[in-house]
């Protein structure tokens, strides 16, 4: 029983990181209707930026800001250099899927050129673990969970209460109609990518911290789990995705805790295959509502 509660604590941390990564991915999907396979590299770049800034300044807060900004600009570059032109050109989703796979490959190898392919150790002092209710969590874990919840709340306000959020929802529902009403769809999509990049870059920072090390390929393996969460929650649906992320995070931690962590990704894909085959539109969809709630 005690071990189950411990696992539950880890699962909360995994789910928080996964929720941020997955919601960023799903925002990118919502405004373009194509899957950005190079999403994982936003996290990787965020982790490298955090590490470099942390080494120089010694401040974790500066590292977090650097990670978010680096992620934001990388995502913006992905949109303006590759995804945006492809979408305006009318390329099929599969073509963009392959193209972003190529982008992901380019970024990974560029990082290898500058930083080498080996693991970089990156740990913050987690502090002494404390009992919090039934869980045993370190202050670092608590900060990760709290920041994920705070970011989610801010995102909710931005999407549901601001003019930009309204435009984002319009573009995601029908790009053509949104343009007819005077919304600059390209600019809204670019801004959404920047926002998603901020979140994903920060997710890369806390992922690197919680794993303790990273390398140029680390975002891509996490992307595979992100994809599972996003598809389980319904592609393009921000809040369904978060529930999907929490579910997948819990399943992974429990499966990894009791079987073996090296099979984690295989598990993720087993879940993904089942979800796609049984509920291809996600677990929480009813036919009438298709976009953000």
């Amino acid at each position: 029983m005690n071990e189950a509660l411990l696992t539950l604590g880890f699962a909360l941390v995994t789910a928080s990181i996964l929720a941020l990564s997955a919601v960023a991915f799903t925002l990118e999907y919502a405004v373009t209707n194509v899957a950005n396979v190079s999403h994982g590299e936003i996290l990787t770049v965020g982790a490298y930026a955090a590490y470099l800034v942390h080494e120089r300044t010694g401040s974790a807060i500066a590292a977090a800001i650097a990670a978010a900004l680096a992620g934001g600009f990388v995502a913006l570059a992905m949109h303006s250099a590759v995804i945006g032109p492809f979408v305006r050109f009318g390329a099929s989703p599969t073509i963009v899927f392959i193209a972003t796979l190529g982008v992901s490959f380019m970024i990974q190898n560029t990082l290898v050129i500058f930083f080498g392919a080996s693991n970089v150790a990156y740990t913050l002092d987690p502090g002494a673990p404390r009992h919090l209710g039934p869980f045993l969590l370190t202050p670092l874990d608590l900060e990760i969970i709290a920041s994920a919840i705070a970011i989610t709340l801010v995102l909710y306000v931005v999407i549901s209460r601001t003019r930009f959020g309204k435009a984002l929802r319009a573009v995601s529902q029908n790009r053509e109609l949104a343009r007819v009403t005077g919304i600059n769809a390209t600019r809204v999509a670019a801004a959404t990518f920047f926002l998603a990049g901020l979140i994903a870059g920060y997710a890369g920072f806390i992922l690197a911290e919680s794993v303790g090390s990273f390398n140029p390929y680390f975002g891509f393996s996490f992307f595979l789990i992100t994809l599972t969460a996003a598809v389980a929650g319904g592609l393009g649906k921000a809040f369904g995705t978060m529930v999907g992320a929490v579910l997948v995070g819990f399943i992974l931690e429990f499966a990894g805790g009791y079987v073996s962590a090296s099979y984690n990704l295989a598990f993720a894909f087993a879940i993904l295959a089942i979800v796609i085959l049984v509920r291809p539109r996600g677990l929480f969809t009813n036919a009438r509502r298709t976009v953000f709630e």
Partner: peptide, 25 residues
């Protein structure tokens, strides 16, 4: 830095892939 040539190849291959998809799919 033995991986650098291999990595550069990777960047070139990725670039070829993206450019072909865009301009001559």
């Amino acid at each position: 830095h033995p991986q650098i040539v291999l990595a550069l190849r990777g960047v070139i291959i990725g670039l070829v892939l993206v450019l072909f998809l865009r301009f001559r799919p």
